[in-house]
Simulated assay, not measured.
Amino acid sequence: MSDEENKFPGENNTGHFWDDDLRELDNEPPTWWTIGFHASWIFVIVYTLLYPSWPMIDTHFKGLLGWTSIAEYKEDLKSIESVRAPYENKIKDMSAADILADDNLSKYVTASGKVLFGDNCSACHGAGGQGNVGFPVLADDDWLYGGTITDIETSINVGRQGIMPGHAAMLDDEKIDALSTSIFEGKAVENASYTEAGCIGCHGADGKGLSFMGSANLVDGIYRFTAADQLSSIKHTIKYGVNNPADSQSRIAVMPAFGGAKLSDTEIKKLAVYVHKLGGGQ
């Protein structure tokens, strides 16, 4: 377009106009933008030459530096393990009780045990050991199998699976209701059915349970199977029992064993110390 036809002569425009004065200019981009543009494609070329990038038929271009994320991970892991080594070497030959008694080792094990707890225990027992529906609290002082560091270590190592028979065939509904109410009120041993049904054999003459059997304390108001209607929950347990394979309505209460191939002896000791220090260890 000649300058005579251009409505804006001397202006660096393309000669395209809309609505009389709206036009397209033909200026060079700013210098900073040009520098950035060229720097970006140069960076891409250098990066793809130095690091793994282009796919090939059976492999990929591995980069001039030979860098891999796996190699970097192993290098970082090696540096972390070198820091942990003095502690790990010590606790390997110590008992969980000795670790708990050593303040420095106990702090170290608590930190690493938190990760183990999150990976293996928190799904059932909660992130802080507060328990979930159907699973015991680990942060109180009520333990079915004892709360000493040795008891806790044994529970983690070999697992726990108690058993309680259902009493629906032995006690009628009236007696079950009465016994449930007595347990709910903390007066289990005062009910005649407590002895008649043989509860005394597992829960003891005082109703406080026997830790070597994993039988519950029936007089402390703390329940293995919590519910909004706790009295009805107690009745259900008395009627159908716990871990009774012959009754589909029986309570299921099984803790798997973590010893053997699942966790190492050192990891089990760490977990035992961590659980003990949650606040409920004896």
Rank of each mutant, 00 (worst) to 15 (best):
S112A: 10
V83W: 06
V115D: 10
V137H: 04
K90R: 15
Y73V: 11
L138Q: 02
Y108A: 09
I99E: 01
L116D: 04
S79K: 11
S79E: 12
P136R: 10
V109C: 13
A139S: 06
A139Y: 03
W143K: 01
D103K: 09
A123G: 02
A101G: 07
V83Q: 12
P136K: 06
S122F: 09
I91D: 01
E88R: 10
A111S: 12
E75R: 15
A123K: 05
C121G: 05
S79Q: 09
A85D: 14
T110M: 06
N120A: 05
G128F: 14
D140R: 07
G134K: 03
S82W: 05
L105I: 11
V109W: 04
M94P: 01
E81H: 07
A85C: 03
E81G: 01
D142V: 15
H125Q: 08
S79V: 04
R84F: 08
E75G: 10
K74M: 14
K107V: 05
N104F: 03
L77R: 15
P86N: 12
D140T: 12
Q130C: 05
P136S: 06
I80W: 12
K107I: 05
I99N: 00
I80T: 14
E75A: 14
L105N: 08
H125V: 13
Q130N: 11
S112M: 13
P136G: 03
K92S: 14
K92E: 15
N132P: 00
E75L: 13
G118T: 06
I80R: 15
S79T: 08
N104H: 09
S82M: 11
V137E: 11
D103G: 00
D119T: 07
D119N: 08
D93T: 12
L100P: 00
A85V: 02
L105W: 07
S106Q: 10
G131W: 07
